Computed example of a mutant assay.
Amino acid sequence: MELDKNIQLRPKFEQFSPKTIGEIKSTYEKIKTFASEDFKFRNAGNHIWLGVGMFRREFWSPSLHIELDSYEDGRTYVKGIFGPDPILWFIFLAMHFIVGGLFIVFGIIAYSKWTLSQPNSFDLFMMSVLSIIWLLLYFVARINRKKGAAQMRELFSLAHRIIA
């Protein structure tokens, strides 16, 4: 899995497992008892969430959400998506919406002032500042993902042990 060359902020993987969902869940329960201090485990229905344990957790530590879908031939289709802590992801998305909303507001104000032949340099300046902030948010997310790449690989190998 190429984590560093992927442009996505939340890398994904999809694969088939020869196990049924029941076999995957029993393997999950076995691994959960042995690795409970190093990793954080949660499950609900056909969803499994894996995270880094509290003693090893950092600001940029990733989590892995695995979704299981069964096929008639007994195989299981596994979809996984990496991401930051859900609260951190919510804050990150909220910041994007705020910056995007302010960009639209200043764009409307700048257009209104332009049509009324009033000076709109402040509004255009704010739009450029908001664009720079938007890019900075993206690069901060890329840096955090790069810092968490080793832990992502650990979570991926743990998930592979569960589903393979």
Rank of each mutant, 00 (worst) to 15 (best):
G22M: 02
T27F: 04
V78S: 05
M126E: 09
E37S: 13
R161H: 03
S157H: 05
L102G: 07
L68V: 07
S121L: 13
G107Y: 09
F92P: 01
L136E: 03
T20D: 08
K5G: 02
K113C: 08
Y138N: 01
G51Y: 05
N46D: 15
A150G: 08
S117W: 13
T115I: 15
D123S: 13
F106Y: 12
F39C: 12
E14N: 07
V105D: 05
S17A: 03
S26T: 14
S131V: 06
R57Q: 12
R57F: 02
I31R: 06
M54V: 10
G100W: 14
F156T: 02
I31E: 11
S157P: 00
G148Q: 01
S70K: 05
T76H: 03
G83F: 11
W134R: 00
L9I: 05
R145C: 00
L137N: 04
M95E: 12
E67V: 09
D69Y: 09
F92N: 12
L137A: 03
E154P: 00
A44K: 13
R75E: 14
L155Y: 03
K32D: 13
K5F: 02
L155S: 01
K30Q: 14
V129I: 14
L135S: 04
I24G: 01
W60Y: 15
I132D: 03
W60Q: 08
H160T: 10
G83V: 09
K25Q: 13
G45V: 12
M95W: 12
Y71K: 06
I108Q: 05
L3M: 04
Q8M: 03
S26D: 10
F55Y: 02
H96Q: 11
V140R: 01
I81Y: 03
L102E: 12
H65E: 12
F125L: 14
E29V: 09
E2M: 01
I104G: 06
L50Q: 07
G101E: 14
F41L: 13
K12R: 08
E58S: 11
P62K: 04
G107A: 11
S63E: 15
F90C: 08
S63W: 08
H96V: 09
R161D: 08
L68W: 07
K12Q: 08
I109Y: 04
N6V: 04
V52I: 15
A141R: 01
F156G: 00
N120A: 15
P119A: 09
A35G: 06
K40A: 15
L64W: 01
I108V: 14
M54N: 08
V52Y: 02
K79G: 08
G101I: 12
G53L: 09
P84W: 02
S128D: 12
L3P: 04
S128W: 12
N144C: 04
F39P: 06
A94G: 12
R142F: 01
S63D: 14
E2R: 03
N46F: 10
I163M: 02
P62T: 10
F13T: 03
F34T: 15
F16S: 06
S36L: 11
F16L: 11
H96P: 02
M1L: 07
S131H: 06
W114C: 06
I81K: 10
I21R: 02
L136F: 07
L137G: 06
S70M: 05
I7Y: 02
I21A: 03
G74F: 07
G45L: 11
F156P: 00
I163V: 14
A150V: 11
L3D: 01
E37R: 10
D69Q: 07
V52C: 07
K79W: 10
E72Y: 08
A35E: 15
